[in-house]
Design a protein around this nucleic acid. Structure first.
Ligand code: MN
Ligand code: MN
Ligand code: MN
Ligand code: MN
Lengths: 147, 147
DNA sequence: CACAAAATTTAACCTAGGCTACATCTTTTA
DNA sequence: TAAAAGATGTAGCCTAGGTTAAATTTTGTG
């Protein structure tokens, strides 16, 4: 016999893994713009030191990444000054923040405690397709109308 | 006024991001051992070329990563021969495969189509805590008893 | 059994994203 | 207002995970 298990076709599986790798490439950018937007909303400005403390990385790492995000057109900053989002950065931040909240609230609705939901949402958010996000929203609405 | 939004405490948020980074460090190892186990189950052996085709990376990348996994005690291989799992690798593969199926089936149960569920599960699986996985299992059981 | 094809290894290179140590600029405060 | 403290930038280093190209080994076939 050949084929004791049911494997996907090779190319199809390669596409799956490729999608995950692509999601990871945009992940850092998404987390940065979301955090920058949150800091500006809560404190009026986003400083590199705040980002470093909240991301749990060194300030040198933040400097490097911010340079890359400037190159990507998401962020603006002048030397020794705080960090701003471009229009593209603001748009991305809005989408990412919305998605983050949906994923987190969805986890709470299915019975995960708030802190764990926050933890898991931070990673899961980057791997949720439009379609899966819509399924999450349906569950959220159902729970609200039942609640 | 100060604090227009509700931010997590800095250290707590740093822990959240740190957990995601740690998950990403183990992610490649998890995907490899799962795939190696699947190939052995379906085809009797796992060749580097199969891994490369199914992961959508070059065979040189597979060689590099397999060397790292040998160093980590998850995989065994002799030059020019196929790839085997150590006992530790087999144990990890079993856990990872189980988790993968739960995530995928859960997505289907909440209304995501099978192909999208497979796509999203490949990324989400690495960010699902024990507690969230248990919530997924509860939903799966509920749907089975309702079905 | 020789030789062509296929698979694997090796080498040299790249980017992202981490780090530490040190230099420089800005802000606070004595 | 000058020195100390704090924030930011710069330099040099590291690992993971990618790539292509060339060398080598194994495998399959006439
Ligand atoms: Mn995130
Ligand atoms: Mn987030
Ligand atoms: Mn995976
Ligand atoms: Mn991920």
């Amino acid at each position: 016999m050949d084929g004791r298990g049911k494997l996907l076709k090779s190319k199809q599986q390669a596409d799956v893994f490729g999608r995950v790798r692509k999601a990871h490439q945009t992940e850092v950018a998404e987390d940065y713009v979301e955090l920058i937007a949150d800091l500006i909303a809560a404190q009026g400005e986003a400083r590199a030191a705040d980002l470093a403390a909240r991301l749990g990385v060194s300030h040198a790492t933040v400097t490097n990444t911010v340079q890359r995000l400037i190159g990507a057109g998401l962020v603006e900053s002048r030397p020794y000054r705080s960090i701003f989002l471009t229009d593209a950065g603001k748009r991305l931040a809005r989408v990412v923040r919305e998605r983050h909240l949906i994923v987190r609230d969805f986890l709470v609705v299915i019975g995960v405690d708030a802190e764990t939901a926050e933890n898991d949402a931070e990673g899961i958010e980057h791997h949720v397709s439009k379609e899966t996000l819509e399924a999450f929203v349906r569950m959220l609405r159902k729970s609200t109308s039942e609640g």
